[in-house]
Design a protein around this nucleic acid. Structure first.
Lengths: 250, 250
DNA sequence: GGCTCCAAGTTGTACGGACAACTGTTGTAC
DNA sequence: GTACAACAGTTGTCCGTACAACTTGGAGCC
């Protein structure tokens, strides 16, 4: 198997599984960078690249002078792969994802849609509405707007297709960046009917703008989840020196 | 002003302001790494470190073979970076943050609290309840649990102190990492009274576990926001994944 | 015991070089 | 004109080195 993945990814993966397996328990200190470099026969820079990835995912701390410490507590999920695709996310948690496309409508972009997709207002777009299920129970209504190029591909898919993003990948359409806004919104008549809740019932709302590797918007979507079915988790860390810059800086 | 901040930070800051000032509009291509390195008189590695920071914030794309592209369109609310402090976040949006401490209670840690703070159950902790306001209007109830060491500091603060985290910083307590879980929860009697809504009213809930640079938990908090007052924004990309989605309750 | 101080260990920053992989453009052939 | 091929430009990966900044633990002292 000719693995084309870079070295630092291999190192990062090993460390991830080692942590997940409990070889380094919560609060344990990782081996030093030099030690890891020797162990894997790579340079320190490569090890640092691997560790930066773990840090970004909130698995370890990292500060000058001290070895890295494993941050315990939270369940560790592969982050972006799951978020990019409802189907992939559900399966990674052992749930069976399902879905049904309720409507695919060509339309002219509203001002808001045009803005988020960076198109001139009135451009032809596709609006797709879907119900998403976990183990058969409806949990989410998804309203997506696609540029025409993408929408045409979506329109050809089976209404029971589970993963649109996977199908789009096969056509060379990639979602690499996404900006999310999360808040609460009341169910409208459609939501209520599709999710089986009352009109006005509070739903967890996620609005999302996805772009491809070139930075071109490829999707503008609004998802509404039944409360209790899903929670969003985020990890964030501060770069450095919060103390060093309360004076004069910037 | 002898700025001790590293070089790559200076470069990153310059690029950030240049983008914010519109020198590179949405979709524009940044100068090549070599060009930037020449321009600033630094090595390419340093430039790459600066650009990695922009990428992590979702300001630019980056892929092999092509110049970086500015990702426009996104409203420039400071995202989760400011999330570690309600006061700082509010001020960055031009709102006047306020708050009132409703209760500070020493207590013995419940099983859940002990778990999140990585303490033995029954350890003494402090529970602090606060109402947070924006321009005078209450928007959020904050229930935090601190280890005794931190709680003692909080207990001494003025009940009208706006920023606990700032005060704690002055005592050398830093919050550098945080793990957030966001979902919807109904208002209980206290929430209803403090926020002026009905019991059972759906609130946007954020649960947070913060740690210091050494990885020691320093706060476990549950915040409940009135819908419509705030929204959480997150950016993620394949390289800098910092977001996950998690099922149900534990 | 408790304290200061020092040395070893560790990560952060920055430099330099080399090659691989990919993109966009240009130019040629048909 | 269209399709293909070559090419220059650009970012990704990896190596090596050096020093700075910081943490930790232990030695020594009071």
């Amino acid at each position: 198997m000719s693995s084309k993945s870079p070295l630092y990814r291999k190192v990062a993966g090993d460390l991830r599984t080692a942590i997940a397996a409990g070889e380094y328990g919560s609060g344990a200190r990782l081996p030093a960078e030099d030690e890891l470099a020797r162990r894997y026969g790579v340079s320190r820079g490569t090890v640092r690249q691997a560790l930066a990835s773990l840090r970004a995912d909130g698995l370890v701390t990292s500060r000058r002078g001290a070895r890295r410490v494993v941050l315990g507590g939270a369940p560790r999920l592969q982050s972006f792969g799951e978020l990019r695709s409802f189907a992939r996310w559900a399966r990674s948690l052992g749930e069976e994802p399902g879905g049904r496309t309720v409507a695919v409508d060509p339309a002219e972009a509203t001002e808001e849609e045009a803005h988020h997709l960076q198109l001139p207002p009135g451009t032809r777009v596709f609006r797709v509405r879907r119900v998403r299920t976990l183990s058969g129970a409806p949990v989410m209504v998804e309203r997506s707007t696609y540029p025409e190029r993408i929408g045409l591909l979506v329109a050809e898919m089976d209404v029971d297709e589970v993963s649109h993003s996977h199908q789009l990948e096969l056509h060379g359409v990639l979602f690499t960046d996404a900006h999310h806004t999360i808040d609460v919104a009341p169910a409208d008549a459609d939501d209520a009917q599709l999710l089986g809740c009352g009109v006005g019932h509070a739903l967890l709302r996620e609005r999302r703008r996805s772009t491809d590797p070139a930075g071109t918007p490829v999707e503008w979507s609004e998802d509404r989840y039944l409360p209790g079915t899903v929670a969003f988790t985020v990890h964030n860390s501060v770069a450095t020196s919060a103390l060093g810059r309360q004076l004069g800086e910037e």
